[in-house]
């Protein structure tokens, strides 16, 4: 409990810094995003002062001094009010984000867990069989795989399995013939649409876990207690899995927590390539359409989820490794 209390102020200050950064970023930049949006919305005709004022009020464009804007911004965020989306007018931003969130959580969340489990196991195996063909193939293969821009992997998979083979659908989260709901046909359609994006994320994410776990294992395998366990005549499998892997997993847990936090941000480029209706694609659309309220809110949601995940990981780490509690 004392450990939790000691970590809490750090979380609060970091959250405040992230929220403030999100407030300041658009205001530090030249020109006003809101002004651009007003001009865009007003269309070609000239805008009279009263028309402009009406549009600004309708969109909730902030007024007043920087300090009063900041205060209003903090109040609005505390109430979960992110303003109104320019693109999906008159939908509030929070509703637009709420609609996209489940897609991203389901797809990227599942794949992140899968990548962690599979990658870590492969990493243990590579370190255990150090210097073997498997080890070399795994390390070189993973380095090369991690070097591919993952949107490119997505494009190639899309071309091969979507266009040429025609096995999987090309765009979207579900086919137009079904409507979202809790029924079987929708589930099947959504699953079919998620295979290629999921595979892309898995392929691009796996390498990091393999290499990370392999390097951690290398460090642990050199420890004295491992030599002692081997000298006791324990089987190599027991030494690798029960003695080495358990300790080597600790840094991996931190990374896994960060990866879970990043899930909300989605796999942006993959979602864009496949037109998947998640958070990443939404952020891309917000940027393309200069939808600043949506963009700001998305960035905040993405950042805050990473911060919260980090906090939780810190706490779990305290449970797993008693040394850090002191």
């Amino acid at each position: 409990m004392r450990y939790v209390l000691r970590r809490l102020p750090v979380l609060v200050i970091t959250l405040w810094a992230a929220v403030t950064l999100n407030f300041l970023l658009p205001r530090l930049m030249p020109g006003t995003p809101a002004g651009a949006a007003v001009a865009k919305l007003a269309g070609q005709g000239s805008v009279s002062a009263s028309q402009r004022r009406a549009i600004e009020v309708m969109l909730g464009v902030p007024h007043g001094s920087l300090a009063s804007q900041y205060w209003q911004y903090l109040k609005a965020i505390a109430g979960g009010n992110f303003g109104i989306s320019y693109t999906y007018f008159p939908e509030p931003v929070s509703k637009v984000i709420g609609a996209a969130l489940p897609w991203t959580l389901a797809l990227v969340g599942t794949v992140t867990v899968m990548a962690f489990v599979i990658g870590t196991l492969l990493g243990v195996l590579a370190a255990w069989k150090r210097g073997s063909i498997f080890d070399t193939a795994a390390s070189v293969g993973c380095t090369f795989m991690a070097a591919f821009p993952y949107f490119w992997t997505a494009l190639v998979l899309l071309y091969v399995f979507g266009f040429v083979a025609g096995w999987f659908p090309i765009r979207g989260g579900y086919s137009a013939s079904v409507s979202p709901g809790w029924d079987w046909s929708f589930f099947v359609s959504a699953l079919g649409h998620s295979v290629l994006p999921a595979f892309t994320i898995l392929v691009s994410g796996l390498g990091g876990w393999v290499l990370g776990m392999r390097n951690n294992m290398m460090g642990v395998l050199g420890e004295d207690y491992i030599v002692f366990a081997e000298a006791n005549g324990l089987s190599p499998r027991t030494v690798a899995l029960r003695y080495a892997a358990r300790n080597a997993l600790l840094p991996g847990v931190t990374a896994f927590g960060m990866a879970l936090g990043l899930v909300v941000g989605g796999s942006l480029l993959t979602e864009v390539v496949f037109g998947y209706p998640g958070i990443g694609y939404l952020l891309y659309n917000a940027v393309v359409n200069e939808d600043y309220p949506l963009m700001q809110a998305l960035f905040l949601v993405i950042t805050v989820s990473v911060l919260m995940a980090n906090f939780v990981v810190d706490l779990i780490y305290g449970l797993l490794d008693p040394r850090v509690r002191r």
Binding site: T14, Y284, V287, E290, M295, T303, V306
Partner: peptide
């Protein structure tokens, strides 16, 4: 140290995209 940790946890690609979108 605080600034480092902050920039370390803010997701890179979304930050880059948002920055690139704000820059004129």
């Amino acid at each position: 140290g605080f600034a480092t940790n902050l920039f370390l946890v803010i997701p890179g690609l979304p930050l880059m995209i948002v920055l690139a979108a704000y820059l004129p």
